[in-house]
Design a protein around this nucleic acid. Structure first.
Lengths: 255, 255
DNA sequence: CGCGACCTTGAAGAACGTCAATGGTCGTGG
DNA sequence: CCACGACCATTGACGTTCTTCAAGGTCGCG
């Protein structure tokens, strides 16, 4: 069972990973009203064309943003971990230009726009932190543009795995050298812009070189340094605060 | 000669293209102190790693954001037209994670961060407009992810040209069916994630099908509808205000 | 046991990259 | 005025990466 405070803890931890929050601001964030909901795999949190009046905080699980092309192919544009608010932008862009989907059974907390707006108006530091969060999002999109535009399939795979691991570690949902990675090869293909078959071959190469292990739902990184080199991964674009975070998924085993 | 007000006019027009500004807000924007500077082709406005204390408004010309890979290849991540503030994000992300380059002789107006911050603090509507602007930016990055990840070279070319034309029209720097397009095929390749040679062949196909004309510095769209279909272009992601804007580059010929 | 979802493999073909050469245009200096 | 060089566009030939199609194979679950 998820206890009611978790959504706030997650959000605070996420924001602290990219900015400095005062104790006051953190306390203020805890006043946000949330409505928890559990969503199954393949469900959508919001869809392109929607005009949401609330946004969501991911508490447990794994989400992605994606866009469908007229041909019916899907491009995943970002991956989201606990603490993320993947539809925060709906606060200012009324019509969704993409969808947010569920990649693994997830718990999300919905927060009314008015509550966020009100809080931001009363706490400029929170408004700034949220703005900063959307800017980091944009930085990640830029890096995905580079990944898709300038790197081979092999490099893309390595890069994407580094990104997920770093993000997981930053919010304390990783183990020492592994993290949740509930993507099918089909979904990986949709994120990397390559076919499923080629994803398979790419992963095999990464495995063969002893850089990673990848089982159904878990990514283990055998050699982070080599993986980063292989994927030309440089974490600067994540704009993480110093202080890597204590691993061990303490958050989960925490009563 | 550029008259001093131009930078503000450009910015206001740009913000009006994506949001509603009150007369007061527009007036407040005019109080921003600006320092004009003309930059030659291939110069950089800011570079990755910089910690700017000011940001810039493009007044005349054409800028791009780009990221260099360790291999020395360049990926262009966005194109910018007059009125844009391509480094607005530096207001909240202190270290630049990418560079902003000049694609054609340009005039930019520099504005100190403190001035923007101060204005935003005193005018919440302006803060929101700027936030919204960065969110539209992010939406454009997402679309580029789709363009690079899910479309063929031919589609990418068509899509990119539609985007530039729509953006130009929205801020009044287009003619009826043409706009400035000062990209070499090399630069187009860096933006589309393909080689120069393949850019050439792609453009020839677009020309052969009578969708566009492309001379040194100018893009003419012969059949916007077909071009949009070819590029799977749907302008929703630009989040433009209704009311397309009066073409004719009135801004330039205006004394 | 059998079905569905996922992973894996091989073979053939399309899309795109690389290499190398040619030609065009434009500004500059003689 | 012309020659020159720099930069850019264009073309052909050939190689690589990635896609597509098709066929198993594995695993969990009803």
């Amino acid at each position: 069972m998820i206890e009611p405070r978790s959504a706030h803890d997650r959000l605070i931890k996420k924001l602290q990973s990219i900015t400095n929050l005062s104790r006051d601001d953190a306390q203020a964030l805890r006043t946000l009203p949330t409505a928890l909901k559990t969503l199954e795999e393949n469900a959508d949190v919001v869809r392109e064309g929607d005009r949401p009046s609330q946004c969501c905080i991911l508490v447990e699980g794994f989400l992605c943003r994606y866009i469908m092309t007229p041909r019916g192919t899907r491009q995943i544009t970002s991956l989201h971990l606990p603490g993320d608010m993947p539809d925060l932008q709906s606060l200012h862009l009324d019509v969704m230009d993409h969808s947010v989907g569920v990649m693994a059974r997830s718990t999300v907390a919905f927060v009314p726009h008015v509550a966020v707006r009100d809080l931001a108006a009363r706490h400029p530091a929170i408004a700034n932190a949220l703005w900063r969060d959307t800017l980091v999002d944009a930085a990640i999109f830029r890096e995905w543009v580079v990944n898709l535009g300038a790197r081979s399939a092999y490099q893309r795979g390595a890069h994407l795995m580094c990104e997920v691991f770093y993000k997981a570690r930053a919010v304390g949902v990783s183990a020492r050298n592994s993290c949740a990675f509930p993507l099918t090869q089909q979904e990986l293909g949709d994120a990397m812009g390559i076919s499923t078959v080629h994803v398979n071959r790419t992963i095999q190469k990464l495995r063969g070189e002893k850089l990673i292990t990848l089982s159904r739902d878990r990514l283990t990184i055998l050699d982070l340094k080599k993986l980063a080199v292989a994927g030309e991964f440089n974490p600067n674009y994540l704009h993480l605060n110093r202080r890597p975070a204590h691993h061990a998924e303490a958050f989960n085993t925490f009563h």
